[in-house]
Every structure is written in structure tokens, then in C-alpha cells.
Write a protein that binds this DNA or RNA. Sequence first.
DNA 1: CTTGTATTTAGATATTTTTCTAAATATCAT
DNA 2: ATGATATTTAGAAAAATATCTAAATACAAG
Lengths: 99, 99
Amino acid sequence: MSSQSLFKALADPTRREILRLLRSGSMDAGEISAEFTITKASLSHHFNLLKQAELVRTERRGQHIVYSLNTTVLQDAASILIDLINPADKETTDVPQDR
Amino acid sequence: MSSQSLFKALADPTRREILRLLRSGSMDAGEISAEFTITKASLSHHFNLLKQAELVRTERRGQHIVYSLNTTVLQDAASILIDLINPADKETTDVPQDR
DNA sequence: CTTGTATTTAGATATTTTTCTAAATATCAT
DNA sequence: ATGATATTTAGAAAAATATCTAAATACAAG
């Protein structure tokens, strides 16, 4: 939601690795934790920040909680960065035309 | 350079605002500081992190130090995010063709 | 070479973040 | 209901970050 929670969430290497793991499909908390050496409690904290930023969605499946990527928000983050590249004083929002 | 210093640099709202200011052109440290309420010393710390991440370039001009955007690195950051969206198991690196 | 202006560096403090262990909650299987 | 598994929450300690004031450096102009 806020770009602050979004960029905060992206700032930690563990969280970026979690996102990378989720590229190839949903994983539950246990499967994700198998890829790290930190405790499940610490990972749960990272999950919370990723959820706050809406970078991941969760779904309970029995005793497991399944995490999946929210690619829309990743796209939003990329757009914010691209917007930083363009000069602030552009006159129109038109699509540029070849001449 | 490292994606760690890059995302760390982008995580702070003051630093993102500095980048936003630089969209419309180079500014020296004093001009930038006029846009904030924090001290110049604190801003200098932020400049250091932006430089480490190579998000900005500097050039001394007399007693002034001029900061400008390095859009290449912003583009790199956007690319890293876009890459997180694509499935990890894609078979080729070919440009997709319309059929 | 001294004075003034711009900026950075050093060192200290306050806040935030990451991580841990222990305990709590939720679900499943018996 | 009881016991086992999966995950989260609470609370504390350690590490990292942002900010400040004061001092240092770099340059420009007399």
C-alpha cells in the first residue's frame, strides 16, 4: 500500500530471497523455512512485513499456511522506480509518438 | 553495485525524495538541503548511502558539490523487481514473438 | 594567509530492525 | 479430549540506522 512499507520490505535480503523462492510457485511456511538457517519465528516476522507491503498473499490449507507472490505490487514497485527516471516536468501524459 | 546497497538506499523516504528532486536536474548539496528540515550533516550521510549504491554521481564545482541521478542503476533496480515476477524455470532467454 | 561559505566527518544518542527462546494458537489424527 | 505438527505471537537482547552537535576539510575571495 504505502511505498514506504513496500521499499522497507524489499530492503532485507532474506525477504528478497523469499520472494525469489515464490517465483516458481506457492510454498508453505515450513517449505520456505527449510531454505533458511534462521528460526521459524524470525521468518514469521519477515512474512508479516511482506504481507503488510502486500507483496505476498496467504491462504490457510489445513495446518499449513501457503504463501504466494503478489506480482501486481512488484510491478508497482518497478513502476515507482521507472517514474524516478523520467524528468518531473514532462508536459503531457500522452504516449510519445515517433515523428 | 550490490543489490543490497541498492535496496537499502531505496528504503529510506528521505533518500527517495532526494532522487525525486534530482529527476529534473542536478542540484548541489545546499540546494537539496533547502528542501529538508534535517541537518546538512544528516543529509550528507544520506548522500553517502546513495553514492555507495551508485544511485547518484557527484562532481565538485568550486565549493559546491553537485549531485545528479544515475538512471542506469535505477533501471537496474526496476529490472531486478521485474525479474522477481517471472517464473524461475523459464526455458529460454529469447524475446517472445507474436504468432 | 585569513576569513567566509559549503560540505563532510567524528562521535554520541535515540530509534528501528533483526533475531532469539519460550509460550500461545490452530489444525489434524487418534 | 489428547497428543503431534505447523505457525504465529510475546518479550528480550543484539545489531543496524538516522539524527544531532561540534569539529574538520576544501575552496574562494579578499
